[in-house]
């Protein structure tokens, strides 16, 4: 027990180390995208998240809505932190989200996480109104590369039925809740559809 507690205490520091190291990454990783944040971080106490935020100038600002525990991403069970850490460094998969402003966010995630849970755990603007049960179209994502799109198992009828209602549907559209990360999808890049909300009433007059 004692050892697991100390590991918990180390965790925030460890992650901030990752963040610091990430500054030395090659320059192709642009400012906000070079943050390698394991998505499971959301299960840490919020205090450590603040510390982590403070330690890196590159981190994206948090909104102040109550910390959302969408909790479908596997948090380490007490006593399993070591295994968990090993897992992280052994089996990290990367996924990049490009938001509607063109900003990209790269996350380190585990196998089995779906894109909706990853986006919500990292406070990206993705609603997931039906809670990931494939009954709405609010987690619509666009896979940027055909190769990756082909590696995702084909959508079932109910996913396609919901995609039919999605705004800005493309040939490589999917519902985030139905895309589950696996080794072949390491490096996946998805775009969040733009709702072109900035148009002004005068544009129509």
């Amino acid at each position: 027990m004692a050892s697991s507690r100390s590991v918990t205490k180390c965790l925030p520091r460890l992650f901030s180390t990752i963040c610091r190291q990430s500054r030395h990454l090659p320059s192709h990783a642009r400012a906000p995208s070079n943050l390698l944040r394991p998505s499971s971080l959301c299960s840490l106490p919020s205090r450590s998240i603040s510390r982590l935020q403070a330690s890196s100038p590159y981190t994206r600002s948090f909104t102040t809505t109550a910390q959302r525990q969408h909790g479908h991403i596997k948090p380490p069970k007490p006593g399993e932190e070591f295994v968990y850490l090993l897992n992280i460094f052994g089996n990290l998969l990367y996924v990049t989200f490009i938001d509607k402003d063109g900003q990209d966010y790269k996350f380190a995630v585990s196998e089995g996480d779906n894109l909706l849970d990853i986006a919500q755990a990292n406070d990206l603007e993705m609603e997931g109104a039906c809670g990931g049960s494939c009954a709405c179209s609010t987690c619509h994502v666009i896979v940027t590369e055909d190769d990756y799109y082909d590696k995702i198992p084909e959508p079932e009828d109910d996913e396609n039925d919901m995609l039919d209602l999605a705004f800005g549907l493309t040939e490589t559209s999917r519902l985030g809740c139905q895309v589950v990360m696996k080794k072949e999808l390491d490096g996946l890049v998805v775009r969040l559809p733009s709702m072109t909300r900035n148009l002004q009433a005068s544009d129509f007059q």
């Binding site: 919020s46 935020q53 909104t63 005068s202 007059q205």
Partner: peptide
């Protein structure tokens, strides 16, 4: 959380264009 995050949010909020709405010529 609240202090830190609050100030971050405000920075973000202020970084939009708080200009008076365009597009309401009428």
């Amino acid at each position: 959380m609240s202090l830190l995050a609050g100030s971050r949010t405000s920075r973000r909020v202020l970084s939009w264009k708080p200009a008076v709405r365009r597009g309401h010529g009428r």
